[in-house]
Amino acid sequence: MSTVLLLSPTMHRRDATTGPLGRVLTAVQDGARTAAEIAVAARLTPSMVTASLEHLSRTGRLRVMELTSGCPAGRCSSCALIDGCETQRR
């Protein structure tokens, strides 16, 4: 149910990476916000975008978070506040 949010903490050199992964990162840096927008900007199929985002997330280039108001419904592990939270659900 919860929305997953991906944050990119790092930039990449556009001239060095011109493949799908590089194009996805460029599209994100240029303002594409959803998989559909990235697909258009990077000229990739939705499945290539999904695979690229999953890879970037798995390798730590994108950070996965839960988007919610207040505490997230289920997992605390994805919450931005986990380091300072005193009422974590274990």
């Binding site: 050199r13 493949g19 992964l21 695979a51 390798t59």
Partner: peptide
């Protein structure tokens, strides 16, 4: 290293994109 690994991964994805298409 960081740049190297991204370039290699990007190259793999280019290979994947070609195979898939």
């Amino acid at each position: 290293y960081s740049e190297r690994s991204l370039i290699l991964e990007d190259d793999r994805f280019a290979w994947i994109e070609q195979a898939v298409s």
